[in-house]
Design a protein around this nucleic acid. Sequence first.
DNA 1: CGAATATATTGTAAAAAATACAATAATTAA
DNA 2: TTAATTATTGTATTTTTTACAATATATTCG
Lengths: 230, 230
Amino acid sequence: MDKHFESYFKAAVSVDNVVFGFDHTGLKVLLIYRGADPYRNCWALPGDLISLDTNLSDSAEKVLQDLTGLDQIYMEQIHTFGKVDRHPYGRVFTVAYFALIKIEDYHLHPSSWAEEAAWFPIGEIPDLPFDHNEILAFAKDQLKTKIRRQPIGFELLPKHFTLTELQTLYESILETEFDVRNFRKKILSMDFITDTGLKQTSVTHRPAKLFKYNAKKYNNLINTGFAFDL
Amino acid sequence: MDKHFESYFKAAVSVDNVVFGFDHTGLKVLLIYRGADPYRNCWALPGDLISLDTNLSDSAEKVLQDLTGLDQIYMEQIHTFGKVDRHPYGRVFTVAYFALIKIEDYHLHPSSWAEEAAWFPIGEIPDLPFDHNEILAFAKDQLKTKIRRQPIGFELLPKHFTLTELQTLYESILETEFDVRNFRKKILSMDFITDTGLKQTSVTHRPAKLFKYNAKKYNNLINTGFAFDL
DNA sequence: CGAATATATTGTAAAAAATACAATAATTAA
DNA sequence: TTAATTATTGTATTTTTTACAATATATTCG
């Protein structure tokens, strides 16, 4: 290698995950309480520096796996942030991902670098270190755009869900309201939400039918030019 | 800084630009003929390693500015690629951008690292070094998605254009065909394409009216909840 | 057991948008 | 003047979106 190149090979790259969860109180983000410098004892996005021998996508998956103990999480790269001074220890680029998890499947699973993790309502995010507030805003925006065009909302709901829950999810994320009848008509006409035949239990009123998302039917549809749009 | 961190600060980050242009023969991509190692004497995406003292976005703009001599180019970050072995000199992550330029405004403007640059039809891209073919495929896909939802097609056309040119642009990128009457109805109903009062000259048949894109009107519209969609 | 309470479920008419389809207009070249 | 070439325009039909409220099914409480 030419001597000339050496000066470039002094940067680090990290991944940061914006992990979304959803329950009846609304959309939430998983933050960790940093146990190590820099910014020890601050709430921050879960992330890690990338080892030189690890692929970018593997690294992002590992962070999530360590944090949640969950497999097969929906995850997507959203943006890379690279301002010169964003990290106190040197030049660190960070590749941001967002992930959607079923909040009920999540059990606290502290990893070595995270002493504590907690869900924060999307409207009550504290000041975060680095440029993490900016990253979070970006991710929230991306989620809003994405959820209208692709059937990823189901990743945030239990396997079986009611149509009311689904509607609440969309209304909450998109910050809008839908007419109950029109929403159901549209969703059901798409034909990849199927009735499980089951009903809610332990509710103190008329129990709702439970539905599930059928990814196979969706994939068949998009191959015929169908476009999801809410 | 803790000794522990040093091993991470040995990566380089580059930017690679997928520069699209359009003329009557279709969509094109600007490639450069590499004059330096690695992969000297290969066609490749224009890009560069990022200096430690340059912000990510500034670096991407600089590559484009050096290559084209143009200002105010539409550019957007699309994805970051970071497989371990993608670069022969060490661990290099690359942040890919796509850019849309008015092909008529482009004049060859060789920069220090590019001996030569040329437009390649999107269907006739040679084998490229690194993971550049993968990056290009990603960018093409992104362009297709993006152009349907945002009025960025105009960035590829001259300031004044005919409706036929606009339709051809969309048909070419989206690989589909539109009915002439319906296409015009839809585009004109959106109200941000305005008639300049001018007409084509030097054509050997009925000259078409020349239109221009009115970004102000578009911005007013989106603030009222309007959604571009083609 | 009946009434009160709470949420779930469903249809229809009107308006808007998308689609399918072909004749006429304006220019240059011969 | 005619031929050639591309530009421009309207309407009827179908599909999709929207607006709007009554009835159904469960639990809890008296």
